[in-house]
Computed example of a mutant assay.
Amino acid sequence: MKRMIIAALAALLACPVAAQTARNCATRDKVVERLAEKYGESRQALGLGAQGAMVEIFASEETGSWTITMTMPNGATCLMATGQAFERLSEALPEQGDDT
């Protein structure tokens, strides 16, 4: 899951201005409420990105649906990606090799 989050964040944070101009934006409270009511999704992870953006992953463990949002400092929250088959992972880091 960490790899998925990193890849998604890299792609999404490359164009935060474009995300704000999209029609899939609203106040954070409205977005969070809609994700909970309509899809049963709750926040699973978050991180800070470029220009003060907060990126959050919401998901429903019952249905497997997931949504990635980005909230800009001005308060606009935009849907960046959605999908199915959400899985919670807890992978260990690979062992570090000895470079000597």
Rank of each mutant, 00 (worst) to 15 (best):
D29W: 01
A53F: 01
S65C: 07
M1R: 13
T82A: 12
E56Y: 00
L93F: 12
N74E: 08
G97M: 09
G40H: 06
A81Q: 14
G40P: 01
E87Q: 15
R88A: 15
P73C: 10
E61S: 09
A26S: 14
T77R: 02
G47S: 12
Q44T: 06
V17A: 15
I5T: 06
T27Q: 13
T82F: 02
A81I: 03
A19F: 01
E62W: 04
N24D: 15
G52S: 05
Q44V: 10
N74I: 02
M72D: 05
M1Y: 12
G40F: 03
E33V: 05
C15K: 13
A11T: 09
Q20E: 15
A53Y: 01
N74R: 05
A50K: 12
G83H: 10
I68C: 02
S60W: 04
T27A: 15
I68S: 01
D29G: 09
P94A: 08
Q44N: 07
L48Q: 06
N24V: 11
L35F: 03
C25R: 03
A11F: 05
P16E: 10
D98H: 05
S65D: 10
S65V: 13
M1L: 11
C15F: 08
A26D: 13
G75H: 06
C25D: 02
T100W: 07
M4D: 12
A22D: 10
G47P: 00
S60E: 03
G83Q: 09
L48P: 00
S42V: 14
E33R: 15
G83K: 06
L46P: 00
I5A: 12
E41N: 08
W66R: 10
F58K: 00
K30L: 08
T71I: 02
R88H: 11
L48R: 09
V55A: 05
N74Q: 08
N24K: 11
L93Y: 12
K38Q: 12
L46C: 04
R23I: 05
V32Q: 08
T82N: 07
V31N: 01
N74Y: 03
A53P: 00
A18R: 08
A11H: 09
R23H: 11
A81P: 00
E87V: 15
G83S: 08
C78F: 02
A81R: 12
D99N: 11
S65A: 15
Y39H: 14
R28Q: 09
Q44K: 15
W66T: 03
S90K: 14
A36G: 09
T67N: 06
A19N: 03
T77M: 04
A92I: 05
C78S: 04
E41W: 02
L35M: 05
G47W: 00
Q96N: 07
I68G: 00
